[in-house]
Simulated scan of single mutants.
Amino acid sequence: MTGFTPQELQAARDRVVPDVAAGGLSVLFCGINPGLMSAATGHHFARPGNRFWPVLHLSGFTPRVLKPSEQQQLLAYGLGITNVVARASARADEVGDEEFREGGRLLTERVERLRPRWLAVVGITAYRTAFGERKAVIGPQERTIGETRIWALPNPSGLNAHWTARTMAEEFARLREAAGVPDRRS
């Protein structure tokens, strides 16, 4: 399935996957924290079954489904990826509330420096915890970081059965339209 042994995946625990980011992006997508597959490969949303890359295409952000190994191509579309918490873990529930709050503080500094038009946090629970917004719902948020607007998106993990790829793509497309990003599907 993955090309990695269980031992190799465990060895990736606590690694950091470098951001795909630059100043002035239209949308900076923000994951919860890297999984072990992402840490082992060095690519965001790398676990088979994660719906981020297909949903990014279905929503019109990219002209085709990119592979995780093609993540640098996002920059050409004015898009990037970071995480609330930088260190990799097997499951997001291995990250405590205090680490999420510290991640939110560090993320705020990163956004202040990079100044994307939108920060899109993929995972409502991570957003709520990192920013102390316990009643936040999916969609645009009132909070801003400087002039950067924030949108909370559903978590694209295959474990998030509440959202289908189609319904997730609809929400991602709402963000794409709000950000003024053209529909890049052929």
Rank of each mutant, 00 (worst) to 15 (best):
M1Y: 12
Q7M: 10
E8T: 04
A11D: 14
R13T: 10
D14K: 07
P18N: 10
V20Q: 07
A21C: 08
A21R: 11
A21F: 04
A22K: 14
L25C: 07
C30N: 04
C30K: 03
P34Q: 09
A39N: 07
H44A: 15
H44Y: 10
G49W: 08
G49C: 09
P54N: 05
V55S: 04
H57K: 04
S59R: 01
T62H: 03
P63E: 11
V65A: 06
L66G: 02
K67T: 11
S69W: 07
E70H: 07
L74D: 03
Y77P: 00
G78C: 08
L79I: 09
G80K: 02
I81M: 13
V85M: 04
R87P: 01
A92C: 09
D93H: 13
E94R: 06
V95G: 03
G96V: 07
E99Q: 15
G104Q: 01
G104I: 02
L107N: 00
T108Q: 12
R110Q: 15
V111A: 04
V111K: 00
E112A: 15
R115L: 09
R115V: 09
A120L: 05
V121C: 10
G123H: 03
I124D: 11
I124H: 00
Y127N: 02
F131Y: 12
R134G: 13
V137E: 12
E142Y: 05
G146H: 10
E147V: 02
T148I: 09
I150K: 01
I150G: 01
I150S: 03
N155S: 10
N155Q: 06
P156D: 05
H162C: 07
T164H: 10
T164R: 07
T167D: 14
A169Q: 06
E171F: 01
F172Q: 02
A178E: 10
P182V: 08
P182I: 09
P182G: 11
R185D: 10
S186W: 13
